[in-house]
Computed example of a mutant assay.
Amino acid sequence: MRIALSKPTYNDEDRRELFARFRAAGHEGLQLKARQYEEYLERPAAFVAEFGDDTGLTSALISNDSLDEAGVERLRALVRFAAAVRSERIVYCNKRSRENVTDADIAESARILSRVGKEAADQGVAISLHHHYDQPVMHRPDFDVFFDAVVDGAVGLTVDTGHLLKCGITDIPRLIADFGSVIDNYHIKDFDGERWRLLGEGTLDFAPILEAIRRTGYTGWLCADEESKADLVPAIEVSAAWLRAAVSPQPTTEGRG
């Protein structure tokens, strides 16, 4: 498994510091928030000229948008940008509120994302749904409805541990086992019941979660989705150290006794 970081920044100085420090701390990739790339959407060459052509920098692009007609066209534009900067995937959050959403609405969103997902795959980009608190795929049954409606595997799943817990889904290992065939990305986030926390400082028991991930044979990204109030540099370093320990070979008792 490869380790990555997603961390909001609110000015150009912090963005540049994040881009400069992530590899030195031990991360192999970044999963960028929209504010970190969106001004370059129509100018991908300018993004590369400004920040370099390290594909780890753009391992994924996170988008939080609607699936109305205009939103779908914005997603298509993001696919073009992702292909140009050699991003592996778009991590897509459907920002519609969960209130009054029906199963039919969830299924229709899956079909829409499937159409764009097929187009994206032709350009070498994957589309991965990020479930989210107060978004259409929020409760445990929503996952079944959505992925039953996905066409030809055109949409993957980004599992976010913190959002699962916030949404009341406590058996995270079971969900991982159930959806292992479509999971293509993990956001590893800690939560204390009220706030996002640095990894290891919340209430999540990650040992069974990590074991469930290993059991599926997953080899992709584990991304620390770091949205605590921690300052940038400590957040980068703590997240990298925690993730490196998480993916290190596990001790075995074979041959002992």
Rank of each mutant, 00 (worst) to 15 (best):
G180L: 08
V150H: 09
V155E: 03
F147Q: 09
A154Q: 07
I183C: 04
F179E: 00
I127A: 04
L164V: 11
Y186H: 06
L204W: 14
G168Q: 09
G124K: 11
G156L: 08
V182W: 04
F143Y: 15
G162V: 10
T158M: 14
L129E: 04
P141A: 13
T161H: 02
H163E: 05
P136L: 00
V182C: 02
G162A: 13
I176K: 05
T161V: 06
D178S: 08
G124L: 13
A126C: 07
E119P: 03
A149S: 14
G153F: 11
F191D: 04
V125Y: 01
F146M: 07
R174L: 15
D134S: 15
S128K: 07
D190P: 05
T203L: 15
R174S: 15
L175T: 03
T161M: 03
C167I: 05
R195Q: 14
L129S: 09
E194R: 06
K166S: 10
A126T: 02
Q123V: 06
L175C: 10
K118G: 08
P141W: 12
I172A: 07
T161R: 07
D142N: 15
S128Q: 11
E119F: 12
V116C: 00
A149I: 13
D122P: 04
V116T: 04
K189H: 03
P173M: 13
H131G: 03
L129P: 06
L164N: 11
G168F: 01
